[in-house]
Every structure is written in C-alpha cells, then in structure tokens.
Design a protein around this nucleic acid. Structure first.
Lengths: 161, 161
DNA sequence: ATGATATTGTTTCCTTGTCAACAATAAAAA
DNA sequence: TTTTTATTGTTGACAAGGAAACAATATCAT
C-alpha cells in the first residue's frame, strides 16, 4: 500500500471512529436530540444569519434534508426563524433559550472529548503540526478545485440535455 | 482554534470532500451500482470468508443493514453465498463473475483518483510522511481503546437493567 | 422596465440505514 | 450431557436523507 492510500485510509478510519464514539456519548448526554440537530445548533450558534442553503453546503447535505430538519427543530422550540425587511425569500435561523442551553451542554461535551484525546496530541512538535496542517490545507484546496471542475461538468452536461 | 480542533476539522473536511467527489465519479462510471455495493464488493474481494458480521464491523454499520444489502446483491448476481460443512450458522460471500468485473472497474477508478490527487502528495518528504502516519496510528489506537471502554460500559449498563 | 435566469426553501416519493425482536445455531458452563 | 449464554443472520417498523419537481422571490441582461 502506498502513501496516498495509507493516509486516506487513516483519515477515514480515524474520522469514522471519532464520529461513532462521540455520537454515542452525545446522544447519551443529550437525550431527545439527534446528532444532526446538535450539529445544526453548533453551526447556527457560530454563524450569524444561517439559512437552509448554508447549512446544507456546510454539512454536504441536500437543502431538502435541512429544510425538514430545521422545520422539526422550530417545532421543538430549539431554534426560531427570522427574515430581513429587504428580502422576502431568505429565511434565517437563530437559537432559542432552549437551543442555547443545548449548545452549552454540547460545548462542555466537546471539551470533554478534547480532554479524552489530549494524550494523542501531547508530543507533536510545532514543526510536525505545521507540516500536517499545511498538507491538509493543500489537499483541501486541491479537492475544492476538483469539486468545482465536477460542478462545471455537471452544468455542461445539463446544458446538452 | 487549537491544534486538536484544526486537525480534526481538517480530517473531517478532507474526508467529506473526498467521499463526495469520488462517490459522484463512481456512480457515474458504475451506473446501476450504489457506492455501498461497490464498497462491499471491494471488501469481499480482498477478504476471504467475508460475512455479514465482518462487513458490518468494517463499515460501522448494523448487521441488519448489511443483511439487506447483501441480499440485494445476491439477487442482482453480484455476489454469491456459501457455507462451510462444519458450520450451519455462518454464511460467507464471494464475488461472481459480474462482481469481479465491477471490482476491476472500481480498481481502475481508484487508480484514476490517485492520479488525480497525485500532486498533493508529491512534495511530502519521507520524514513528514512517517510522522503523519505514526501520529495517525497513535490516534487510531487511542480511539480503539476508548471504543472498547465504551463497549464495556454498554455491557455493564445492560447488566444492570 | 421587462423578460429570462438563478436562487431559496418546501414537498412528495423513494432508498438506505437503524433499532429491536426474533429464530437458528454455536460455544460455554453446569 | 444438558442447560445456559453468545453469536449470527433476518425481518418489520420506523426515521433520516436524497432526488426531483415546484412556487416564490431575487438577480441579471437587454
């Protein structure tokens, strides 16, 4: 197995394990709320004027899925929607009291996760850290470019149909 | 944002982008087969005596989901099941001709993906590469330990109920 | 200003996966 | 051996998310 594969498999495996483990803990601490809802809350709390489209892009999900999710969350009283006077189309979300409370719990949990995994990061040197980050940044930019290309191809194809 | 967060977010973002992009390409090249099916084929091709349980563990999915997936794949003629003379319970899978053909296409696609992302890896030094891999290995082992702990807790909790 | 195009959010239908209960078999304990 | 426990795979009810069609609004080109 070569470099590329090893690194990609490493990414995938670590990410999967992390998601599995944290999801488990989270749904235990935040009973009654799904991990999707909690992610949504997290995003809304740190991005002003969040809307369906931005949430969907950030989570790699469809607008339809987010639309349903946020609708449920409004009904549950976790978030509320608002609009701007000069735009009758876009609908934004902000957290309610309840949403903020959940967010607080989630933040604490987050710290707990960091504490749990602290040892893994302890003896990374600054140099190692920087080299990893710059690699990831490069990778990410590359993928963005490829995704953009793909987007163009999709559009082109639709144009021909 | 601290080291841990940056790295984790990097993992997540790269992984998501990669999945999104490759899935897209794959379902374009392998029309009629879902990416789950292709992953299954990949696993079965490189693990002798694959069964529902092993597939489920490897994909972080439930046995139920894999059971349905493999059932469909058998019906489609992509894989076939077999048993061993001394075990009437376990059911194993292997690829059919058709499954092998799909696997071949997938492997080629895989090479294509590697070629696409080659540039990103080009100027990583051996040292950088080794340090990343050893970090990931450490992280992975840590998560395995934590997952195992979690498992114990689950069991304990059930015992009390 | 007006007509064409793009964006935003919603809904319906469908697929995929989870959960929980289950039967069949295997493994372990008595 | 017999009994108990664990493992394996399956199913049905359900929930989450994707795809596509849609209406409403905004943006752009002319």
């Amino acid at each position: 197995m070569n470099k590329e594969e090893q690194i990609i498999i490493g990414f995938r495996d670590i990410y999967n394990k992390l998601v599995w483990l944290n999801k488990f803990k989270m749904e235990d601490s935040l009973k009654g709320y799904t991990s999707s809802e909690v992610h949504c809350i997290e995003y809304i709390s740190s991005n002003v004027d969040s809307n369906v489209t931005k949430l969907a892009e950030s989570f790699y999900m469809t607008r339809g899925a987010i639309s349903k999710l946020t609708k449920k969350m409004v009904e549950k009283g976790i978030i509320e929607s608002y609009q701007k006077p000069d735009n009758k189309k876009e609908i934004y979300f902000r957290l309610t009291e309840q949403g903020n409370a959940i967010n607080k719990i989630h933040e604490d949990l987050h710290d707990e996760f960091q504490a749990r995994d602290k040892a893994v990061f302890e003896d990374i040197t600054e140099a190692q850290f920087d080299s990893m980050l710059s690699f990831m940044e490069k990778y990410r930019r590359h993928l963005d470019t490829e995704i953009k290309k793909q987007g163009v191809n999709i559009t082109n194809r639709n144009d021909l149909e």
